[in-house]
């Protein structure tokens, strides 16, 4: 017995509302991220990831307020990402009740920001999000701008570099698999997970419960993130945990 692998439902939030749709029959407002997060908290999720996809900077106050309300109702770790560019952004989110912040494109434009953030707030709360696409056999490249802009950076080397700068965790999304529901990019997940000594969250592509188990068993991920399979009620968090446990994976049941 030991450390459990984690299941992390992910909420995409725009202007304070969950987007990509959540279809729970038994909650009042399926667009309210706080209600949705509380539902996952009660259902046994191990963490919540909140991705702010709000385009404009003026809406940041809405995000802070949402995080503040969420932290009052959710008693599991909360990671907030999207548009985190400065130490001030991080401080505001942590003060509002986030436990970790996820840095994505700001790390690509200025890698030293990750080091500065880890120094200031501790590695335990700095997650680096990596969006990768396969460009050749066993080779993946980092893309920004929602997968439109290549950077020429090798995803595995980048993960190692981020660890060196002080990242405490990697949130790894396959842009090829995201939304396709064919399962994680296992080769990518395993390549990154085996290259670093910090935890890796697999993301992008979950369509069924076996995909979650494969992310851990084949991809060596420490945690698995999914959105739509939970949002649309196809599977509950407890069904997912039961399936993974039946596959021999240690879970918090």
């Amino acid at each position: 017995m030991g450390l459990a692998k984690r299941i992390i439902p992910c909420l995409d939030v725009e202007d304070g509302r969950v987007v990509k749709g959540v279809q729970f029959v038994d909650i009042r407002d399926a667009g309210d991220p706080v209600e949705v997060a509380k539902r996952y908290n009660d259902a046994g999720a191990d963490e919540i990831t909140f991705l702010d996809i709000t385009a404009s900077h003026q809406e940041r106050d809405t995000t802070i307020e949402t995080v503040r309300r969420m932290a009052a109702e959710v008693f599991i770790p909360l990671t907030v990402g999207g548009g985190v560019r400065t130490c001030e952004d991080i401080r505001n989110l942590l003060n509002a009740g986030a436990d970790k912040v996820s840095i994505n494109s700001a790390a690509v434009f200025n890698p030293e920001f990750v080091g500065e953030a880890a120094d200031r707030f501790g590695s335990q709360c700095i997650v680096v999000a990596i969006d990768a696409k396969q460009v050749a056999d066993n080779k993946w490249e980092i893309f920004t701008h929602g997968g439109r802009k290549p950077t020429g950076i090798d995803a595995v080397e980048w993960a190692v570099k981020m660890q060196g700068l002080g990242a405490g965790e990697i949130l790894l999304t396959s842009m090829d698999q995201d939304g396709v529901k064919n399962g994680f990019d296992i080769a990518l997940t395993r390549a990154v997970s085996n290259a670093v000594s910090i935890p890796v969250i697999a993301s992008g592509g979950v369509g069924n419960l076996q995909h979650l188990a494969d992310g851990v068993l084949e991809g060596h991920a420490d945690a698995v993130l999914a959105a739509s399979i939970f949002h649309f009620g196809e599977y509950s968090v407890s069904e997912a945990k039961a399936h993974m446990a039946a596959c021999g994976i240690e879970m918090r049941l």
């Binding site: 030991g2 692998k5 590695s123 335990q124 890796v200």
Partner: peptide, 16 residues
């Protein structure tokens, strides 16, 4: 770990 994979540090998550 039990499967022979290196344990990640930090120790992050739910343990008994």
């Amino acid at each position: 770990d039990e499967s022979g994979n290196p344990l990640k540090i930090p120790h992050m998550g739910w343990n008994q």
